[in-house]
Amino acid sequence: MTDPGAARILEGGYRRYDGVRSGARGAVESVALHTAQRALGLRRAARFKVLPVLAAVLAYVPAIVYAGLAVLLPGDLTENGVLPTYAQYYFFITAAIVVFTAFVAPEVLCTDRRTGMIGLYLASPLTRTTYLVAKATAVLGVLAVVTLGPPLFLLLAYVLVGSGPDGPVSVAAFVLRIVAAGTLLSAFFGSLSMAVSSITDRKAAASAAVVILLLLSAVVTNSLVEAAGASPTLLLANLFELPFEAVVRVFGEPSDNPELGRLATPVVVGATVAWTLAASALVWLRYRALEVTR
């Protein structure tokens, strides 16, 4: 039995903290992780998990089906066209990418401004720039769930059943291309969605605006080029199809879009990068001018 005389009151009131602090880098990591968790609905009510789960299902189910087919059917099924190539696979998961694009950045940026968290973040070691770096990292990470994960899963499945590239060098080359393509898509759609989200505090309005912007740009540019005979260069403003065309070029595959296919690879990839940079610049300019202390 414990000696009653040895009992002590351990509640010592407010404690000082003399340990090491992680500074701005730790703040960026913490905000990025916290933001990604919230965007994926982790540590939140069930209703916040619906969209992330739906997008993940849309992105991974085709990959699981194709992996199953690869197991069941003999031969190199990508070579003979039975299974889609890595670039073609993105066309099957376009819906998942659009859902995530329309949902993630508004959740990540608009919420902070509406709830006043932005003021608390900027009263920490974060600056506006490092805050945006943290948020962009989270958006890229979450989008990578649908842009990077499924093709990597598909590659792994194909390799395991002998339908994938042969040898470690060839596999590594495909991994690099998948990472490049996934990063390109995540950066493009993430920056675009962040740019729209920097303009309004309303999540629903931002999400709707992202979808409308993507679809409208496709409809308008395709109509002008195909129906009105405008220059294919105009398709560089097709924000819906342009990044997927860039992905096709990253994998060195022939284009499925005859008009976009007439444009040179550096032009397509350059335009995709230029849109990404322009959208990022808009976000930065919007946040530079943001009033945060109220």
């Binding site: 602090r21 992680s22 730790g26 916290h34 939140r44 709830t115 920490s124 070691p125 109220r294």
Partner: peptide, 25 residues
């Protein structure tokens, strides 16, 4: 801050912990 708007679906404990983490703890 002056305003009373805080993330409504975040638990108080998680909220304060997160603020501690971004201050380097």
């Amino acid at each position: 801050p002056e305003h009373h708007r805080l993330p409504p679906d975040v638990k108080a404990q998680d909220f304060v912990r997160h603020i501690c983490e971004i201050h380097g703890l």
